[in-house]
Every structure is written in structure tokens, then in C-alpha cells.
Design a protein around this nucleic acid. Structure first.
Lengths: 331, 331
DNA sequence: GCGACTGTTTACAACGTTGAAACAACGTTG
DNA sequence: CAACGTTGTTTCAACGTTGTAAACAGTCGC
């Protein structure tokens, strides 16, 4: 069931069948009908391996992220897959676990001609290394800012989002507002950006900072870091967690300590994962427009792949919304 | 940077280079060294499109599931990707949304020679249709039982797992135990199996049944269905939810109604998603061995792809554990 | 000194597709 | 009516790889 088989049965050349399959204009109606009949009868499907070899494209892109089972990434992946499907691309998912070697290997995948391009959420890999790449991999960075990027990049405005959340907490009348989620192990810049936004807001209102660090953005670390914050005297009356998972872990610690959210400690996160809509209390958060992030990322990648090499990198921004819920209800 | 280039520079034939690249035994040490030097210098990477065309394999498998952003599926995907990586397979993820047409299209993908095989978590597609497939797609069904399966299948023992949970609830002294999660729209059989296990346990102890139906296994539906159960008189004193998401939705409803978990209503789920470990209270559940499920699925698929066609379908079982947590603590 | 064997290397064809170019048949134009 | 353009179709080569078979050199046994 290759073009040859169809051609033989329809009594035309292989190339004519190819022309019909590809919708080439100059094929006579009779020939087209004849060929299409045979195509339908045999339920012909082009061999995409062969087509790819000939065209130099695979029709597959890679989406590389630290961990698929973090809800934020799972939700984002869904949108990326949907956006890619509109360009008839398949998406292979690669998990890096935030590991430098695995991030490097993903970038190498392109050279194997297995994928046409990569959407990467970097964690460990640094700007210098990305800038030093010699190959002309089509690459889009998603969600984590690497400043003065060596590649196309799309994210929300993390500084402003963090400032908005912090101001929301200040607006509740809280004065001892902690930040939970600073990092010093990541080469990528999300945590510093969110920290900067938090600091801006506090500085504007003359309030003191309290910063808790974590290694990874998981519930367990949020829970542990929160225990540390509760041990402070005086303890914080509000906490801005740098993502929702941290916030949900923190919430667990607060409630288990017999304190109330938001009465004793108001709590806000960032990501708008579904869990936060069903926790008790529900979680105030910042909702990045994930569909837009995905659409822009795929679109930048498409332009990279189709366009001429050597174009300068582009920065794009997706929108976000502050979503107040029960965890920061006013008294 | 194709084999030809290497061959020219090393002064040998293309096939000899190919032999070196593929580790063919009968190559003289000197030739091998010479070729490998050039390979390293040019950082040669085989063109996998060409190799695939020649070998008739793509090295890519598809994992098709209803929704990637349901935590259970996200967690499972991670294990499938890891297991596939051990066979040097890439995994493309396809989302079916439980939609019949999309499930069909996934099965078609194999015929495009884009993937070597498919791991499918079916929702809408029925046993008859799968049995009626004409192509010899390598296919493994994961997690949802289609009885007398027309394809390889791996899952946990859903009936026993459901019975274990129900007996755990009975063991707490509860007598009005409801099931939440029956379905009548799904062609696949998980819900009926879990319902059967629930009924077995109740029947053995002579307790009455209460069954709440849902369409999809989401928090929102769990929350809504739980509201219905709370309106009953007398209301249930324990609920077995057919998955953790339903249970978390239900928990939200119970707590919002001013009732306590587990004192007023004990609650158990199934899946062991991470959220349940951090909810307040933490959620009792059944933990399927997801790594084992994934490993078996990938292994069955590998045997399908490598083996002769026409082998009879195989059934495999993965293990599970009951994980009691706060939501079913004894009084 | 001859055939058989082993080890090493090569030429060739093929996987299925498509771009470039060639070609035939036809109508239009000067 | 010759030159030209258009339409429809075909031939050819190539994408980069690998299986098959064959060529070649050297060694062994008799």
C-alpha cells in the first residue's frame, strides 16, 4: 500500500498519485477521480517516515519540562498539545527532572532529526550555555525567564504578578507578610522575579520582609517551610507562596497546627492549578493564561522552524489574572 | 554530516561507517578507530528519519489518555515515559477527552507510520470496535478493563480493590456506606467493576447500598454528587469515591456543609494522587502500583511490536495497596 | 598447491516519498 | 504556420540509511 501500488492499480505514474494525494492543482478531473477511487479502496496512508526523510521534517516537536506530574505542567502540556495539533504536529514529552544533563540531551534530540523543534521549560540550564549552542535548533523557552535570552521566550510578567498578589495581601490589612519559595539552586529566573515583585510591594508600603527558601516547588517543601514560618515570633499573618503546590503544602501545615486560614494566616499562591479551587479553604492565586502561553510558544516555534535561521530572539508575554478566593477573604 | 561525508573523510565505504555506527562485529580495529575518529570530530548523528524508513520503525509510541491534566493520568504518564525511555522510545501524548472519534484517530496514527504502537486508556471505544480492527496495530490497553479483551491489557484488580476499601469502611463501624462514581455513559468497564466490589463487600455484611452517579471523574462532579448524598435522610456515614478527584470534590462539599471528616462522614478514594496526601484531612485511598502498570504496559507493547502478529491477547495485573489516612481514622 | 573457511570490506538496491526537469498534446498569438 | 504558453503527465534522481550478496585477502588443512 505505497504510492507504487496505487499507481499500478490506477494505471498512472507514481508521481501522479503523489500529486493527487498532495492536492496538486494540475491534474485532470478524470485522472484525479480514477486515482482517488483506488486510494479510497485501499485506504492509502502516506508513509510519514519517507515523507519526512524527503522533506527534512518530522512533524513532531518536543515539550521538555521538569516534571509532568506537577499539576501546573500537566495543565500546560494539555494546552501545548492542543495548540500543536492545530499545526498537525505531534508532541513528545520529555521529563528533565530539572536535571542539567537531561536538559542538554533534549536539545540534542533535534540533531537526531527526531523532532523539528523544542519547547523547553529550563530549570538547571543557564543562559550562557544556551547562548553557546552551535546548532540552529528551533527552540522556544517557556515560562522561565532567562534574561537577555539567547532564544525565543514566552512567560507572564512574573514581577508584576507577584507584586499584585502581595498588594492584595496588604489590602487585607496584613502587615507581617512572608514570601515562601525563594531558591538559590536554580539557574533560571522565576523565583528571583517573584521575590522582586514581592519586595517592590512591601517596600512601597514600608513593610518588613520575611523570606523562606525551598529547593523544589512541591507540597512537601511548602509544608516544611511553613512549619518554619509558624515558629517565628511574631508569626506571619499572611504568606505569598511562589506557586500553588507550595501553598497547598503550607495550608496543610497551618490547619494541622490548629490555626485558621485566612483568619490567622492568609494564603496566596500562583499558577491556578485545579487543586486550589477545591481545597478547603479554596486558594487565592494568580492564573496565568495557560492557553495563551501555549499558543504563543507553539507559534514562536513554528516561525522558528519555517523561518530563516539567524533571526534575533523574541520575547513574548502572556496575560494573567489575580483570582481571590477563600484563603484571603477579608474579615 | 551523513554517512557519506564520514565515509569520504575516513576513506572507507559508506557501509563500513554504518557498520561501525551500529557496532557490527567484523570491523578491523584500525578501521574502526579511523572511522570513530572522524565520527567524533564531526559529531555525527544518524538521521533517524532515514533509519526509520529503512527499518520500518519509528522509535516512537503513543500514549493516549482521556486527559493529561487529571493527576492520575499525569502521574501515570511520567512512569510510562520513564519505562519507554529504557527501550529508547519516545512517547507522544494524545488526549482523547474520552471522545470516540479521537480514540479512533489515535489507533489510525499507527498506520501513518508515525508511531510503532499505542498504549490506550479507552473511555468511549467499545470492545466490539476494538475487536473489529483490521490492521495489526500494536496496542495495549491500560487501566480500563474491556472484558474478554481484543487486545493486551493491564490493570489492577478493580473488583478486589473496591471490596478492600469498602471493607475498610465497614471495619470502622460505619453502616450507611455510599458509593460515588457509578457511570452509565462509559463503554469501558472500570466503574462497573468498582461498583461490583463495593456491592460484594456490603452484601457479605448485609448492609444496604447507596449509589451516586457521575459523568466524569472530576472534583466538580464529586462535589455535586456529594451534595445529593448529604441531602439524604439518613445521610451516609461513609463514602467510597471511585477515584481521588471525586473524593476531594466530595470532601470540599462535606466540609463546606459544616460537617467533619471522618467524624461525620468517612471518606475514601482510589488512585493515590498526590493531592490526597496533602488535603485536610488527608485522604484514605487505594494506591495502584503505577510504576508497575507502566512497566508492564510498555513491556507488553514491546513484545507486540517485536513479536509475530496474531498472538492471542494477554491479561496482566499490577499490584495495589490500601492506604489508610486521616479521612477514615477510627474514632 | 588447491579448496574451504574466516574475517573484512564493498557495491548495489531498496525503503516511500517528492522536487526538478522533461515531455507530449493542445490552444493561442503574432 | 511557427513560436510560445498552458495543462497534464511522466521520468529521474535524491533524501540517508541498512540488508544482501558478493568481492577480496589471508589462513588453514590436506
Amino acid at each position: 500500500m505505497s504510492l507504487r501500488d496505487i499507481a499500478r492499480l490506477a494505471g498512472v505514474s507514481v508521481k501522479t498519485v503523489s500529486n493527487v494525494v498532495n492536492g496538486y492543482a494540475h491534474v485532470s478531473p478524470e485522472t484525479r477521480a480514477k486515482v482517488e477511487k483506488v486510494l479510497a479502496e485501499l485506504d492509502y496512508r502516506p508513509n510519514l517516515s519517507a515523507r519526512n526523510l524527503r522533506r527534512g521534517r518530522t512533524g513532531v516537536i518536543a515539550l521538555a519540562l521538569p516534571e509532568l506530574d506537577a499539576p501546573y505542567f500537566a495543565e500546560l502540556s494539555r494546552f501545548v498539545i492542543d495548540a500543536a495539533a492545530e499545526h498537525r504536529w505531534l508532541v513528545v514529552i520529555e521529563q528533565t527532572d530539572g536535571d542539567l544533563d537531561r536538559e542538554r540531551r533534549v536539545l540534542d534530540g533535534v540533531r537526531d532529526h527526531r523532532v523539528d523543534g523544542v519547547i523547553l521549560t529550563p530549570f538547571a540550564i543557564g543562559a550562557e550555555e544556551l547562548a553557546a549552542r552551535t546548532d540552529d535548533t528551533a527552540l522556544v523557552l517557556l515560562g522561565e525567564r532567562i534574561h537577555d535570552g539567547p532564544a525565543d521566550h514566552v512567560a507572564i510578567d512574573n514581577v508584576r504578578a507577584a507584586r499584585d498578589v502581595t498588594e492584595h495581601l496588604i489590602g487585607l490589612g496584613r502587615t507581617r507578610i512572608a514570601a515562601l519559595g525563594a531558591q538559590d539552586n536554580s539557574a533560571s529566573g522565576t523565583a528571583p522575579l517573584r521575590l522582586a515583585g514581592y519586595r517592590q510591594a512591601l517596600a512601597e508600603h514600608g513593610l518588613p520582609e520575611t523570606v523562606a527558601k525551598v529547593e523544589r516547588y512541591h507540597r512537601a517543601e511548602g509544608a516544611a517551610a511553613m512549619a518554619g514560618l509558624l515558629a517565628l515570633d511574631p508569626r506571619p499573618d499572611a504568606v505569598f507562596c511562589f506557586n500553588d503546590l507550595l501553598a497547598l503544602g503550607a495550608m496543610r501545615t497551618i490547619l494541622a497546627a490548629g490555626l485558621r486560614v485566612p483568619e490567622d494566616v492568609a494564603l496566596a499562591g500562583l499558577d491556578d492549578i485545579e487543586d486550589g479551587r477545591y481545597s478547603t479553604p479554596t486558594l487565592t492565586t494568580v492564573a496565568p493564561d495557560k492557553a495563551e502561553l501555549a499558543r504563543i510558544a507553539v507559534d514562536l516555534l513554528r516561525q522558528r522552524i519555517d523561518g530563516r535561521p539567524g533571526q534575533p530572539p523574541r520575547e513574548a508575554r502572556a496575560g494573567y489574572r489575580l483570582v481571590p478566593r477563600e484563603s484571603t477573604l477579608g474579615r
